[in-house]
Design a protein around this nucleic acid. Structure first.
Lengths: 343, 343
DNA sequence: CTGAAAGCGCTTACAG
DNA sequence: CTGAAAGCGCTTACAG
């Protein structure tokens, strides 16, 4: 470390040219007509002393900064949504950008300070990500071309990408309907986040398509956990046979895991006696349940990539108009928890 | 954004002093005797025009860089180990550092390019993290004071922090022994990673303490998944009663989840008929199993924080000697899957 | 106490 | 085709 990295001047001296020339050939600027001879000497000299440009200096001069600020509420906190970070990082890297990752823990104050610190680092492009699909107040200090990931700002007017929860739910319910189910329950999240409202819409959409009247008693809310799923599922299982739902759409895979448990405790088999569909396609859970869970996947990777591409997209691709958020499809993942209703 | 951020010169003009003075007061250098009067004028001027220093320029000049490169094999890929990233980011932020996050996908070539790019950004401090406890070849290009997180370099000689898998396993087995179990199986990972060897040692340690001779037939290897756990657990359950283990130590929580399933299929109850201990304390799994799983936690947060603190620690705290890796304790998390053996 | 000047390592008009 | 010079926005000896 103590040996100082070679500078452009060192290359210039060794190649017997000026720093200007070195800069020109190393950046291979289109306009510059430089004989191959000179060009070679420079490249050789650079290679020999292991020259590599100081990005900081370049950025200071050009006022660019090949970096992106990735600020999130607590995204890294959630094992769950990491693929968004991963995909974003990969997409950024592929474009020659580096990602500054900061999570603010949800505090508005930290958020402000974070944005400030990044701005000082000359970071001029931001992705603001949430771990849950949320509608968020506009974080102060963020530039107007910030891209929202898994979130949209309350007023709109910014680019944003969110999962298409409504269509995802619709697909889930259709799957149940296609197998012949008519009494279909929706075990929803009691916190009723953005995703909740959207999925309820999708639930109704699909029911309406098939002409089945929604039974309000079959839409229940509980904590979106295994425990909640077991409790709510159990209550539903315990209804009189004629009123008992045969198909269950669960707010997430953990709720589904709870529903499995409640079924098991009552000697009910999945999918012979009851069909269950989850949401999230959560790693280590959905595929590993017994039987493997049919569920709707959250397009974390796709959204992460989209966000970076929108941010770095072709010049002027964002004309500042108040775009609608992009709805990323949530594919239905068919496994083995859905079958025809009993009898 | 088109409005250019104010520079130090703007503050100087407004306050009627030189840039030198502004720099001096804003950085409140210890030696500098500056009258409160001047000091106030500068601060006021800075506040009025919303001045905030350009970190890039400062870093170029001082050759510092308040940034840390966090390079990992595929850490963000694993929902599982995110807490390491999270804790590292928080610790860095608390010290005024920003984290460049890059994961290389495990490719040595990408790794080299990554380090190179970060070096060009004048990043001079690195954490190299792995998602699994691994022994890694020394990544090329990383400075010698790099801190290894959840990994140690093959030759040693670098600071590193890893989970104390041996002690963790010992605690798990002791827990089983304390409840009276003597026939204790270890359902190990077939890939036999670093953690595997260490845990086997801990398993033997604890057995030896209690004078129970290890039965090689009770140490089995399988894929570290639910399916693997179900298969291996099932085979063990099917042994003749007198040879059947009553306690199970599983390589991870997913294996334990499989063991639960195998037990259930055979009408065996946890913990009445069989006691099970996992490893990882994996979120959304361990605590949500039925019954909740007694397991050993991986100290991801603690390791993440430690890495940053070692990196940023008091000057000269690293004297370059070939330190042994720090072993971070893996606490036993008692829940409800362990009881006395039947009969 | 305070300022002019040099310089961190680049890039980019501008001359020649 | 190629170089001298200015400048990105700071900090820091050095004078005074």
């Amino acid at each position: 470390m103590p040996v100082r990295r070679p500078r452009i001047k060192d290359v210039a001296e060794r190649a017997g040219v000026s720093p200007t020339t070195v800069s020109l050939v190393l950046n291979s600027r289109p306009g510059a007509r430089i004989p191959d001879d000179t060009r070679d000497r420079v490249h050789r000299a650079a290679a020999e002393i292991g020259y590599t440009p100081n990005t900081l200096a370049r950025n200071l001069r050009t006022r660019g900064s090949q970096t992106i600020g990735f600020v999130s509420d607590e995204i890294t906190t959630t094992p769950f949504a990491v693929r968004m970070v991963e995909a974003a990082q990969e997409a950024a890297w592929a474009r020659g950008y580096l990602l500054f990752l900061v999570n603010t823990g949800g505090s508005a104050e930290t958020e402000r300070a974070t944005v400030e610190a990044l701005l000082q680092q000359q970071v001029d492009r931001f992705v603001y990500a949430c771990m849950w699909h949320r509608v968020v107040p506009l974080p102060v200090g963020l530039p107007t071309d910030t891209v929202f990931l898994n979130a949209r700002p309350v007023g709109g007017g910014h680019r944003a990408v969110v999962p298409d929860d409504r269509a995802g739910a619709r697909a889930a319910i259709r799957e149940l309907l296609a197998h012949g189910h008519r009494r279909i329950a929706f075990i929803d999240d009691e916190l009723a986040p953005e995703a909740s409202g959207l999925r309820l819409l999708g639930y109704h959409d699909a029911l309406a398509e098939h002409g089945v009247a929604p039974d309000p008693a079959l839409h229940v809310r509980t904590s979106a956990s295994t425990r909640g799923g077991a409790a709510a599922g159990g209550a539903l299982f315990d209804r009189p046979a004629a009123e008992r739902p045969t198909g269950f759409f669960c707010f997430n895979d953990r709720v589904a895991m709870g529903a499995y448990r409640a079924a098991r405790h009552r000697g009910l088999r999945v999918p012979e006696d009851v069909s269950i569909v989850g949401y999230d396609d959560q790693e280590f859970i959905a595929a590993e349940l017994d039987p493997p869970l049919t569920t709707v996947a959250l397009p974390h990777r796709e959204m992460g990539r989209w966000a970076i591409e929108a941010l770095l997209g072709p010049e002027g691709s964002h004309d500042g108009r108040t775009d609608e958020p992009v709805l990323m499809p949530c594919p239905l993942i068919r496994r083995e928890s859905v079958g025809p209703p009993p009898g």
